[in-house]
Simulated scan of single mutants.
Amino acid sequence: MAIQIDFRSDTVTKPTAGMLEAMMSAKVGDDVFGEDETVNRLEHKLAALFNMEAGLFCPSGTMSNQIAIKCFTQPMDEVICDQTAHVYRYEGGGIAYHSMASVRLLNGSRGILTPELIEPEINEANIHYPNSSLVVLENTVNKGGGACYSLAQIEPIHTLCNIKGLKLHLDGARIFNALIRTGDAARDYGKYFDGISVCLSKGLGAPVGSVLLGSAETITKAVKIRKAFGGGMRQAGFLAAAGIYTLDHHIDRLSADHHHAQALAGALGKVSYVFSVMPVDTNIVLFEVAEGFKAGSIVRQLAEKGIACNTTGPKTIRMVTHLDISSEMIDMAIENIIHLHPSVHK
């Protein structure tokens, strides 16, 4: 059966009619020359929204994260992050490849770090140790089932980094989901982070792109690194226009995705083939299958019903809600989840 309901990721969305119209009518120029006014407008819009000095439009969140890490480290430095962090697990070994830095992995609760976890792992000055130079947080935490930081949790980490002389970067892959969940204001983030990567192609629904935010000095450095990474796009305003559109139209509706995710979690918590469901804070549902069942088998059987999702391990499955998932689709998915009877040991 063809896919009818796609929970694999919030990256699978298609541009809406309004977004396509905005893209096709965008005023463009050569962005490498700094002449694409739509790109410039997107960068300025997000920088102002997060109360930071400047922004840089990049093709992906992976690129914007890796540019930031290179800006904030030197070879033989060390990056501190959670062991589930996207910058460590899912960016192709980019920290080692691009920045020649080592990584100190911590075990946060659902990927959420605290000053108490971080401080003991900051190296003292010693020729035997790498220089601890950067802490990276992820908001929301993908492997943590969409767990998110509040500003009250971020502030003491910022204070610690400031005292110890470390930079602080935010992988804001789903930052607007976190803002909807916590009620915090985007403008308050700027005073806590040296860099923020804001992804536009996940819950917000743009087809491409992420914007790195930072000081004017950081972004000047980042422009050259982006060029060296091959990320210097030309008439990129067609893509940037989608980003502007989604910022204007798709932020508030993220609460619907959160509601849909909670509904899925409620249904999954009632069926015999699910052992446990991770708490749902935003739009990601992670669950563990019960003893005797295999995650891959359940994913295949759901696919036969037209429902696509992914395994994240032999016993775990992920579902992600997004712009292209309607309430009717959620009802249909729940009906199939409840009436699915997977065989044990298959």
Rank of each mutant, 00 (worst) to 15 (best):
M1R: 15
I5M: 03
D10W: 08
K14S: 11
P15C: 03
M19Y: 12
M19S: 08
M23C: 10
G29Y: 02
D31V: 06
F33E: 11
N40I: 12
L42A: 15
E43F: 01
L46F: 08
A47Q: 09
L49Q: 15
F50D: 08
N51Y: 07
P59Y: 14
S60D: 12
T62I: 03
S64F: 07
Q66M: 10
A68K: 09
T73S: 04
V79F: 06
C81Y: 01
Q83E: 12
Q83L: 10
T84R: 11
T84S: 15
Y90P: 02
E91G: 02
H98M: 13
A101R: 10
A101I: 10
R104G: 07
L105G: 04
G108D: 05
L113E: 01
L113G: 01
P115H: 01
P120I: 00
E124I: 01
A125W: 04
N126G: 03
N126P: 02
N126Q: 10
T140K: 03
T140I: 12
V141C: 15
G144L: 06
G144P: 08
G146C: 02
G146Q: 07
A152V: 09
Q153C: 05
Q153H: 05
E155H: 04
P156L: 03
H158D: 02
H158P: 00
L166M: 05
L166I: 04
L168G: 08
L170H: 11
F176V: 02
D184P: 15
G190C: 00
Y192V: 00
D194K: 08
S197F: 00
V198N: 08
V198H: 02
C199M: 12
C199D: 09
L204H: 01
G205T: 11
P207S: 14
S210Q: 07
L213F: 05
E217K: 14
I219P: 12
T220A: 03
K221W: 09
K227S: 00
A228G: 02
G230A: 08
M233Y: 11
G237C: 13
L239I: 15
A241H: 15
A242K: 02
G243S: 14
I244N: 12
T246L: 13
L247Q: 07
D252K: 13
R253E: 10
A256T: 12
H258R: 08
H259Q: 06
H260E: 10
A263P: 04
G266P: 00
G266M: 04
L268H: 14
K270F: 11
V271E: 13
Y273R: 10
Y273F: 14
V277F: 11
N283G: 14
I284N: 04
V285I: 11
L286A: 06
F287T: 13
V289G: 07
I298H: 02
A303C: 00
A303T: 07
G306L: 09
T316Q: 09
M319H: 11
T321S: 06
L323I: 05
I325G: 06
E328F: 13
D331E: 13
I334S: 07
N336I: 02
I337F: 14
I338N: 06
I338K: 07
H339P: 14
L340H: 04
P342R: 14
H345K: 13
